Computed example of a mutant assay.
Amino acid sequence: MSKHVLAQNQYGKAENRIVTVTRKGNDGAWHEIRDLNVSVALRGEYRDVHLTGDNGNCLPTDTTKNTIYAFAKEHGVDSPEAFGILLAKHFVSSQAVIHEAQIRVEEFAWERISVPSRKEQHSFARKGQEVRTAQITYSETTGLQVLSGLKDLTVMNSTNSEFHGFIKDEYTTLQEAYDRILATKVTARWANSASAAANPEHDWDASYAKVRRHMLEAFAETYSYSLQQTLHAMADRVLDHVSTVNEVRLNLPNKHHFLVDLEPFGLKNDNEVYFAADRMYGLIEGTVHRQGVQPVIATSDWITA
């Protein structure tokens, strides 16, 4: 018997790739696809399997994988959130030793290649935009929690951004900027209300599109004096316009663009030619939540860019 204490632990099957094809219309010629990456983590009575190797309480990770594919066939995939809720509730309710299940879903977007002269519509091109994410946790004690999100959404304002008035010490070399490019690769997560999570009729696709739209509109419309200010404006606008969202956490790496010195060539660079730096970068992160609402997105659970 170990003299040490076994603390938090979980296990499951990670990154199960699944693509579903839904055929619509009388002849099934109109196809819809969902392209997902699904990960399962189970928490419960697993002390013996760690300390003695007794697998009596261990549901094989291969079974969790099979469940994902079977559920896709039996129930379909309406949205990452809805599919994750089905899976999480199933694992907790089906096995007495499982007390909590967490499902993480990434969705890769495709757009239709429309051929007007062809009756069948089953051709797609992979979108070069963001990856949609969802994390669903269902627990016997705390109930259902749904975190939606996105990552790898690269955005840019080519003007209406400044950065000046900052602290300067003996190591400061950065020049003040009164007209600069502001670019970032957005990673966002938002906590949905308990009422939305519990509502089987909640339209997760519409909610995702609405949150995304308001974040992008805030980014575009904010005259920015810092990326921190822009972060707050993006989260604040979501909370103002989407009543089912209680908390927004944003991870915004500052994708620096530096003016190229063209004077050695006898040329003036009037904010026209920039060097786009890959590394290093400033990393701005923050959470905004409604007053009176306890934050649920833990900073320790955050994966930085």
Results as ranks from 00 to 15, higher is better:
His50Trp: 13
Ser93Ile: 00
Ala188His: 08
Lys210Thr: 12
Met1Arg: 02
Ala235His: 02
Val242Ile: 09
Gln294Pro: 03
Ser226Asn: 00
Gly12Ser: 09
Ile68Trp: 01
Asp152Asn: 13
Lys89Glu: 10
Val288Arg: 12
Asp27Gly: 05
Phe124Lys: 01
Gln129Met: 10
Gly12Cys: 04
Asp301Leu: 06
Phe166Trp: 04
Arg126Gln: 15
Asn199Leu: 03
Asp240Met: 13
Lys89Trp: 03
Ser93Gln: 12
Phe219Pro: 06
Tyr46Gln: 06
Gln175Glu: 15
Asn55Cys: 02
Lys3Tyr: 06
Ser161Ile: 02
Asp240Gln: 14
Ala96Asp: 08
Phe108Asn: 06
Ile98Val: 14
Phe163Ser: 04
Leu59Met: 12
Thr141His: 10
Leu174Gly: 05
Leu36Pro: 00
Ile103Phe: 14
Asp205Gln: 09
Thr133Asp: 01
Val21Gly: 05
Ala7His: 11
Ala188Pro: 07
Gln229Ala: 04
Arg126Trp: 05
Leu150Asn: 04
Glu32Arg: 03
Ala183Pro: 00
Arg279Ile: 15
Ala101Cys: 14
Val155Gln: 01
Gln121Glu: 11
Leu262Met: 14
Thr137Val: 15
Lys255Ala: 12
Arg180Trp: 09
Gln102Ala: 14
Ile284Pro: 02
Ala209Pro: 00
Tyr274Phe: 15
Ser94Gln: 12
Gly84Thr: 01
Gln291Ser: 11
